[in-house]
Each structure stands twice: as C-alpha cells, then as structure tokens.
Design a protein around this nucleic acid. Structure first.
Lengths: 68, 68
DNA sequence: TCTAAATGTATAATAAATATTACAATTAGA
DNA sequence: TCTAATTGTAATATTTATTATACATTTAGA
C-alpha cells in the first residue's frame, strides 16, 4: 500500500511532529507510515483523512502486492 | 468506529464466508469486524471498499470516541 | 418440523501496529 | 558555518489484529 502523507503534510506545511499531535499518535508512527514501514489502522487512516480534509483513497492506495 | 459491512454485504447478497474469501481474510475476521470487535487495517478497509465499489468513508465512519 | 446454511462465540497462538526512549543524520536559517 | 529543527533509525515493550479450530445458536427453506 502506498500513501501520500508526506505530500499532504507538505501542502499543509506541517512537520511530522505536528501531524502526530493532530492525529494523536507518536511521531515515530507518522514517520514509519510515511516510509511505508507499516500499515495504519483504519481509525488512524480516517483521522488523517479528516485532518487533511480529503478522502482516504486520496491518501492511501492499494498495490497489486496487497492482494497476495 | 462504525461500519456498514453487513449492509454492503446484504446489497451484494453474499455471506460472511463469501466476503472473507473475496477479501482474503478469515470468516472470523469479517464476523468480528461486523460486530465492531476490532478495527481492520487500512489494507483490509481498502480491499472491502474495492469489493463493494464504494469509498471507504461510505463503509467506515469515525465516532467521537475514536478521538480520545 | 428437519436440516443445512449462516452466524455468533470462545480460546489460544501468531503477526503486526503503536508507544517510548534515545540517538544519529540531515536540512534550513541566522 | 553553527545551531536548532526536522527527519530517520533502533530496540524494546505493549496492545491489537488476524488466524485457526471448534462448537453453539439462529435462520431459512424443503
């Protein structure tokens, strides 16, 4: 799964730490997500979509490998 | 977090077992999700949205308690 | 009503998400 | 260039998602 958190963050011009606070998770969680190190829960994905005011599908997109 | 998986499933007229197979998870995962027993990963949410051909936000919605 | 299918439930095991702390590397601005 | 802010990384611990197996309950159809 890909995500465009870094881009959305750039649009809003906020740091990982800022976003972590807004989303109520640790900064490492944001960092690891941006680096594709793990897949967030749907609750966190919904929170991010709400923060960035976009649809989840604009931030997170499935790849073929996600169906294996 | 609420979800309308049961409703979407009813629209498509498929069983939990059918959906489990389509989404490539166990039936228990589908059942537990429908009963609100846990929150799926974003990959699973995206798969379900793709299966039901709707936006994730049509299936999963945040509640106030998800921000605590 | 009988039966099969569908759904709910329980337990235990494993994998994965998330927090915490801490430090290294990079970047931007004075 | 120095310094502070930002980002990347690592290890460990804890919580939570997911599987597997198995059985009980409910529902729908013959």
């Amino acid at each position: 799964m890909k995500n465009s958190i870094k881009v959305e963050r750039a649009k809003k011009n906020i740091t990982q730490a800022d976003l972590a606070k807004l989303a109520k998770v640790s900064r490492q969680t944001i960092n690891a997500m941006e680096l594709g190190k793990y897949v967030p829960s749907t609750v966190l994905a919904l929170r991010l979509a709400q923060i960035f005011e976009v649809e989840i599908s604009e931030i997170f997109t499935l790849e073929d490998s996600d169906w294996v």
